[in-house]
């Protein structure tokens, strides 16, 4: 565990924590622009977090200790996820602790934790949200794993840093299987982060909400932690996407110059990704909830096809 590794690790983690609300703000702002609205500004998520942290927490009478623990668990899990996905550099101290499969495990852990918390109060909405979240997750998790497996098959490693090193730093090669993986990943990203065709982040309509239904009973600092964790999750997903599909610019081991370039490159990619996501969310309409399994099933099968194509074409 080198000093440089530890430094980049902590730098990357802190940066992810700080940049995650920024990315969400940028995404929302782009959406607002595309929809001909003024928008609340990029810094809105920070303001919201600050406001929530200062409020008095209200907890339902029927809540168990589990309910109060879950926001922290969620936050911790997302911190780990953000620290093992190489977004700035590939020399990360914690990256050996968890590989691509464990990354999917972390997301599953977070998903199950929040679903359990949603069921804890015993309201109709909580249970409904938990059920829908698990339904989406039940197909999204395998789909994500298929995407990661396709990348692992190419780089013959499940370690995320090795995957990025292989994809970014060896001589340029086209991997057709990644085209399938890319489609599947985009669908998973939208579904897992409660974005548009599956869930609407801007709506509290009872019949359609998933993520919002689960966190209805949270308030103040607990809600702030959950909101923050969700933005880190979105950020982590986008950086996974960047790491797998456009990895160029991520600094290699012990490379100070590369590090200096990596940050502006990352921010540029994030800006583009945010605008792209906003565009997708503006163009597509919310699907009926019964279509969600079909959507996720399609994503999963595209992931499987990616793996198959890797075997078919040998690349």
């Amino acid at each position: 565990m080198s000093a440089f590794g530890l430094f980049t690790q902590i730098l990357q983690l802190l940066l992810s924590l700080l940049l995650a609300p920024f990315f969400l703000g940028w995404l929302n702002q782009c959406r607002a622009w595309l929809q001909n609205r003024q928008g609340a500004g990029i810094e809105q998520p920070y303001r919201k977090l600050g406001k929530l942290f200062h409020k008095d927490a209200v907890i339902a009478e029927s809540a168990s200790p589990l309910f109060r623990m879950v926001p922290y668990v969620l936050f911790g899990a997302m911190c780990l996820a953000a620290s093992i996905v190489p977004s700035l550099a590939t020399d990360l101290s914690f990256s050996k602790a968890a590989d691509a499969i464990a990354l999917a495990g972390i997301f599953a852990l977070a998903r199950i934790a929040i679903s359990l918390a949603a069921m804890d109060i015993g309201t109709a909405f909580g249970g409904m949200g938990a059920r829908r979240e698990m339904l989406v997750g039940f197909l999204a998790e395998p789909a994500l794993l298929m995407v990661l497996f396709t990348a692992s098959l190419i780089s013959r490693s499940t370690s995320l840093t090795v995957i990025v090193e292989t994809l970014a730093h060896r001589h340029f090669e086209i991997y057709p299987s990644m085209a399938f993986a890319g489609i599947a990943f985009l669908m998973v990203l939208l579904a897992e982060n409660a974005r548009l065709p599956v869930d609407n982040p801007a709506s509290h309509l009872e019949l359609t909400m998933i993520h919002e239904a689960m966190i209805l009973e949270y308030s103040a600092r607990h809600l702030a932690l959950i909101e923050w964790a969700s933005s880190i999750k979105l950020f982590a997903y986008v950086t996974i996407g960047i790491a797998l599909f456009v990895p160029w610019g991520i600094a290699q081991a012990a490379d100070w110059l590369g590090m200096a370039f990596a940050l502006p490159i990352l921010i540029a990619k994030l800006l583009v990704a945010g605008a792209g996501l906003a565009l997708i969310e503006t163009l597509v309409a919310k699907q009926r909830i019964f279509r969600a399994p079909e959507f996720m099933g399609t994503a999963f099968l595209f992931g499987v096809l990616g793996m198959l194509v890797h075997f078919l074409l040998g690349a």
């Binding site: 200062h54 008095d56 927490a57 209200v58 907890i59 009478e61 109709a124 909405f125 009973e217 600092r221």
Partner: peptide, 17 residues
């Protein structure tokens, strides 16, 4: 969270929309 913010908690009946 505990260091920088107050830890006040109130128990209420659930909001439930």
């Amino acid at each position: 969270v505990r260091r920088f913010y107050h830890g006040r908690v109130r128990r209420e009946i659930p909001w439930n929309c």
